[in-house]
């Protein structure tokens, strides 16, 4: 029985490593990959490897599932574009949908859930109204949650489409307003790149930095291996295609106050996935990197999260990063009273 997710990381980094697996270890690997939402990416990575015949259909299923996810994500994006067309403002796709819409390597086999878009903050009321007109409705009815989103978050409360049952998250920046770094949302929108579909995606450096922000500041590192794999793929492609990428990345990281986050993300990607990174951007190894690696690999061969203490520490930390102490206390108190 595998005690951590190292085998998944190995298989993504170096597909040949799966040749050493026996049946039970394959079962472990598949469960871990499914739990980390990386089974589609893994299946594509192993495309040229001769896997055991018992595994072939499992990987084929994963590829077909993510092919369909891509098609559905693009359809959702287009539905949002049609709904927002009257507004004539930039609609920037984010995360998974952006990766497939821009046809990036990172989109290959990626699982995609909700549609995430970003628009200028002053346009949000109009965006909200148009989406409601086009069939999306509020998921949360609770007025505390609703007000919390509007006052402190970087997105509207989630909306779900009443016929297609798909969620949309409308952002106006890439981190909660209560988080310590304050990325420059206006600059992100200014630099965004227009696709043939009239939709936008973030410019390469911003796209990577959003992925970095998402990995650290906007969660307790659950699903972190997938986010870190995104970072690996983005870095590999962008650095390859543009010699100025690392310089541009430094400029944008400073602008968005994400230099420390970027450094750590690059170190972790290099350590786990062997991502080739520019040393000036990655900085020196720190002791806490060890804790991050432990946290990221905290999953056993049954697909269960383990290392409870490490995970708990990161959960508390994620809230700590998200809001100042007094506000955190008030938030947890309200949440607790509501049960």
């Amino acid at each position: 029985m595998m005690h951590n997710a190292q085998s998944l990381v190995d298989a993504l980094r170096e597909p040949d490593t799966v040749l050493a697996l026996d049946g039970a270890k394959w079962a472990d690997l598949i469960s871990i990959a499914r739990a980390e939402s990386l089974v589609g990416s893994l299946a594509h990575r192993l495309a040229d490897i001769e896997v055991p015949k018992q595994v072939e259909p499992i990987l084929r299923d994963a590829i077909q599932a993510t092919d369909l996810a891509r098609q559905q994500a693009l359809w959702e994006a287009d539905s949002a574009r049609r709904a927002l067309a009257p507004l004539n403002c930039k609609t920037v796709l984010m995360k998974g949908t952006a990766y497939v819409a821009a046809n990036l390597d990172v989109g290959i086999g990626r699982s995609i859930g909700d549609l995430d878009i970003m628009a200028a903050r002053d346009q949000l009321p109009a965006v909200e109204e148009l989406l409601l007109d086009a069939g999306w409705e509020w998921v949360k009815q609770d007025s505390y949650d609703d007000q919390y989103y509007r006052d402190h978050m970087h997105e509207l409360p989630p909306l779900i489409h009443r016929e297609r049952d798909r969620m949309i998250d409308v952002h106006h920046t890439i981190l909660p307003l209560t988080a310590r770094p304050t990325p420059n949302a206006v600059e992100i929108l200014n630099a965004a790149i227009k696709l043939d579909s009239e939709l936008y995606v973030m410019a390469p450096a911003d796209m990577l930095l959003h992925s970095v922000a998402h990995l650290f500041a906007d969660g307790d590192l659950a699903g972190g291996l997938r986010n870190l794999w995104d970072i690996d793929r983005l870095v590999q492609q962008f650095a390859n295609e543009d010699k100025e990428f690392w310089t541009e990345l430094a400029t944008r990281a400073k602008l968005h106050q994400l230099e420390r986050h970027l450094e750590r993300a690059l170190r972790l990607a290099a350590r786990l996935y062997g991502t080739p990174v520019c040393e000036d951007r990655a900085g020196k190894t720190r002791f806490a990197d060890f804790l991050y690696v432990r946290r990221l690999l905290a999953r056993d061969g049954w697909g269960r999260e383990n290392r409870k203490f490490t995970r708990q520490a990161f959960y508390i930390r994620s809230h700590w990063l998200r809001m100042p102490p007094l506000m955190l206390a008030r938030h947890l108190w309200t949440k607790w009273r509501k049960g």
């Binding site: 029985m1 190292q6 060890f290 432990r294 269960r304 290392r307 409870k308």
Partner: peptide, 17 residues
């Protein structure tokens, strides 16, 4: 380089049949 990520360590969840 430290062999950080290998091995088991504390905080393991209960074993399963």
């Amino acid at each position: 380089m430290l062999a950080w990520s290998r091995g088991t360590g504390v905080g393991q969840v209960a074993r399963l049949h």
